[in-house]
């Protein structure tokens, strides 16, 4: 049964990875569209990425 733990954690990490990837990609797009707002976008991106990352780590430690 212990294996399931790791599979679950892996799934969550994949999810988190996709999430952070999307955040990064969208932020890039947003910056390309509005380069003058790049500072604000970067901040928002980092915060959002950090929050998702937190979930990922929580999963890792729970496993």
């Amino acid at each position: 049964m212990e294996g399931l733990n790791y599979i679950g954690a892996g799934l969550i990490v994949i999810g988190a990875g996709i999430g952070i990837g999307r955040i990064g990609g969208q932020a890039m797009e947003a910056i390309a569209r509005q380069p003058e707002a790049s500072g604000k976008i970067q901040t928002a991106m980092l915060i959002a990425a950090a929050l998702i990352e937190g979930i990922g780590f929580a999963a890792l430690f729970a496993a």
Binding site: A50, L51, E53, G54, F57, A58, L60, F61
Partner: peptide
């Protein structure tokens, strides 16, 4: 708590 875990885990 997330602050703590994030720094530690990274």
């Amino acid at each position: 708590f997330a602050l703590m875990i994030r720094l530690y885990a990274n």
